[in-house]
Amino acid sequence: MSILVFIEGVEGEVKKSSLEAVSYATELAKKKGVATTAVAIGNFSATALSSIGKYGVAKVLHVTNDKLAQVNVMAYATALAEAAKKENAEVVILPKSSAVDAIVSRLAVKLNAGVVTGAVDLPDTSGGFKVKKSIYTGKAFTTVELTSAIKVITVAKNAFPATETGGSAQVEVFAPAIPESDFSIKITKTEKATGEILLPEADIVVSGGRGLKGPENWGMIIELAKELGAATGCSKPVSDMDWRPHHEHVGQTGVKVSPNLYIAIGISGAIQHLAGVNSSKCIVVINKDPEAPFFKAADYGIVGDAFEVVPKLIEAAKKL
């Protein structure tokens, strides 16, 4: 028996959410008294892979197949299922992400495993195997019992801290057989903002709404984000009007974020927007209307005109 954890990369490096998943997996392995193996697919730097060992895994399986350099949902599911079989895995842990969301269901079918996405806490193994996940788009939680022999879980972002415990991992090349039929989805082009902090991964998010009046005013949002090392987000009307790209739209129908700090500027706080941010650790709201509903969901608030407040914040952020 063992626990398998999937490592997702970005530009050759291990994503922060993957390290959180590794810590989650090793913590669970400790409880169960079993070993943890990590699986990385695609291009990673050698140091990136061995450094996963610092988070408590002894072995990393690296699938180096060139055809898997880009995420291919079907082939990745096959590779992970093969790794799970090879390692006799009882639990497979994956970091929740847009790519993993599409892989995990297929993996569960291959392993005939019960599956829960977006776990917010370690499983309770005191009697059975129970995991808590958020439902109703962050408005509630449920506890789910997994009764299958193999269990598949994705871990919500920022729900479990990545903790270094020392050690280094041995990297082993793993070459599972992948049928040609797994390559029936062809990726023809990728458009990706490089060098930016990815919104779903960010520790801090600075988000702007319709209160900012137009795309020409986003300079100060971007500058504040830059000073704080934050990603930028927006409300739905802002992306609907093309002031900002669609992948920045936060909320019920957009990206769900769970940063340590979410700063909302000129956003009213409609329930559909809150659905995407309510698992943030700390929420700051800047709005000129003291009655804006967002203040009810906020930890800190400033009632004021964004065009006066934000420049002052940028100055203050420079001194941090």
Binding site: A113, T142, T147, A297, D299, I302
Partner: peptide, 26 residues
């Protein structure tokens, strides 16, 4: 059946929002 939903819960209530004067946003 591979999973069972056991119970639901609501998130803990949010504490009051601390207000900061707009003249001293720092």
């Amino acid at each position: 059946s591979l999973i069972n939903m056991l119970a639901y819960e609501l998130p803990p209530a949010k504490g009051a929002c601390k207000m900061i004067d707009a003249s001293t946003p720092e």
